[in-house]
């Protein structure tokens, strides 16, 4: 009696899975991917890297949870957020080299759109701090054009969307304290140790 319905339901079990890699390749070819992302393993925990056509826009400590990062990208950059690891091959390669101690300078285009105003100035100045050297919050505020704004500088660094590559870990407190770090102080210590900046 019910044979036709049963057979139709069975049909759903035998349909081959869609070819998602082909879809993503076509989406990229047709310029429909505004934000491409990939997850990256690192000694400081899992990272999510995201790029727009302009450059790297986010590098986030996910602690294994990517939802919040992806939703923020969807809301603030574009909802056309697609997992497309090959678009981030260069970022992943340079991060690997950095963590192996073979790279002291990232050669990547940066998309600064998630920062603005004074915060962006702070982050741009931070991007120029050389490997292994330390600046204070006041130093970086001065470089951004307002020596008295070290608290604002701290906030700007706390909002950094591209840690590690924009090395906010190289900014520390006057007098020797490490200051804070998004993602936990242990990570800041690890990165500075890797760069030989703690001795």
């Amino acid at each position: 009696m019910k044979k036709v319905e049963e057979e139709l339901k069975k049909m759903s079990l035998t349909v081959t899975a869609p070819d998602v890699p082909a879809l993503i390749e076509r989406a990229m070819a047709e310029n429909l991917v505004d934000v491409a992302y990939a997850t990256v393993d690192s000694p400081v925990g899992p990272l999510l890297a995201a790029s727009t056509p302009k450059g790297l826009v986010t590098l986030a400590y996910t602690e294994g949870r990517t939802d919040d990062v992806l939703e923020r990208l969807s809301e603030r950059v574009s909802p056309r957020v697609i997992e497309a690891p090959e678009r981030l091959d260069d970022v992943r390669k340079q991060l690997d080299e950095y963590f192996e101690g073979r790279r002291t300078n990232f050669d990547l285009d940066i998309d600064w759109q998630l920062s603005s105003g004074f915060a962006r100035k702070i982050l741009r100045a931070t991007a120029r701090i050389p490997y292994g050297s330390l600046l204070t919050y006041r130093d970086i505020a001065r470089k951004a054009g307002n020596e008295k704004a070290s608290r604002a500088a701290g906030n700007a660094l706390g909002s950094n969307s591209i840690p590690i590559v924009v090395p906010c870990h190289r900014v520390v407190r006057t007098g020797g304290g490490l200051g804070g770090y998004t993602g936990g102080l242990a990570k800041k210590e690890f990165l500075l140790g890797l760069e030989g900046a703690l001795s």
């Binding site: 939703e71 969807s74 056309r80 957020v81």
Partner: peptide, 17 residues
């Protein structure tokens, strides 16, 4: 909030196919 498009692929591509 508009979900990232990847979630539509993850959640619904099977049903569409």
């Amino acid at each position: 909030m508009k979900p990232p498009f990847q979630r539509l692929i993850d959640d619904h591509s099977g049903a569409v196919k």
